[in-house]
């Protein structure tokens, strides 16, 4: 699967092992230049971790990948983001179509004030699936995929708010999986959870890897080391260094990366 095997007739960027590429992405919140010339590719079926100190732009970058930043007024972006070689900002079609392919899990678990069942079914319903049987089947299937089924199967009609924090976050993951995305963006998904819940989330990421392309923002260096294949280090809006996670952690090329991962700042 190296570039050598790519047929010469294929477009230059076509590559079977890259799912998302960002090229020269710049981003502004009003006058605040939050991302500067970020170029990064994220492997298909792999886990890519985005690390860096608070305010370095890693979450902003993540939110560029499903056009979530567009919902914030006064923001502006330049550059290109491609999903399977299709530019998601130009001529992609409806943004909701993109978001069913690129799912997202947020830092704070944010289940809807609805039942557990309706939370998982929401994405299917808003995308036009009405058949009760199909939805019921899909909800069960998805909850099993998120390893939540055994814990909630007897209380599907209960409010999602009755679940513990960790369960709520796994419900949010299940909710995102229900619309069968190809990519899962995770914005510090375990930062508000206790160690046991965090372990469960990490185990889940390990299970989902392969079937899904996962991009995870994390403050927790150990977590990045445990779950990711590739790591990108962000600092002051720039992508300083990216590479195999083991290489970044054992042999960083940049001084700032080394300083950050050894805990000298951040």
């Amino acid at each position: 699967m190296t570039d050598m095997t790519t047929p010469p007739s294929a477009p230059p960027r076509t590559s079977t092992h890259i799912k998302i590429t960002a090229e020269t992405v710049d981003f502004w919140y009003g006058d605040n230049h939050a991302l500067r010339d970020v170029t990064l590719s994220m492997g298909k079926g792999k886990v890519t971790a985005l690390i860096g100190p608070s305010g370095c732009g890693k979450s902003t970058f993540l939110r560029c990948l499903n056009r979530m930043n567009e919902t914030i007024p006064g923001t502006r972006m330049t550059g290109t983001v491609r999903l399977d070689d299709r530019d998601i900002y130009n001529g992609f079609g409806d943004v909701s179509q993109l978001r069913t392919r690129v799912g997202m899990v947020f830092q704070k678990s944010n289940p809807f004030p609805k039942s557990i069942f309706d939370n998982v079914a929401y994405g299917l319903r808003v995308n036009g699936i009405k058949d009760r049987q199909i939805i019921t089947h899909a909800v069960e299937d998805t909850l099993k995929k998120a390893f939540l089924w055994d814990e909630v199967k007897d209380k599907l009609s209960h409010s999602a708010y009755m679940l513990s924090g960790g369960q709520q976050q796994r419900l949010c993951i299940a909710r995102a999986l229900a619309v069968r995305p190809e990519v899962l963006l995770m914005d510090e998904p375990a930062s508000a959870l206790d160690p046991i819940s965090t372990t469960k989330i990490e185990d889940l990421i390990a299970e989902l890897k392969g079937s899904y392309t996962i991009i995870i923002v994390t403050h927790n260096m150990q977590q990045a080391g445990r779950v990711s294949d590739k790591t990108a280090f962000f600092y002051e809006g720039k992508m300083v260094e990216a590479g195999e996670t083991t290489q970044i952690f054992t042999n960083p090329q940049e001084k700032r990366t080394e300083d950050y991962i050894t805990g000298r700042f951040g």
Partner: peptide, 13 residues
């Protein structure tokens, strides 16, 4: 805001 974003993130208009 998180509730709106969760909805948008699932492809809701």
């Amino acid at each position: 805001r998180e509730l709106r974003e969760a909805s948008y993130a699932l492809g809701a208009t």
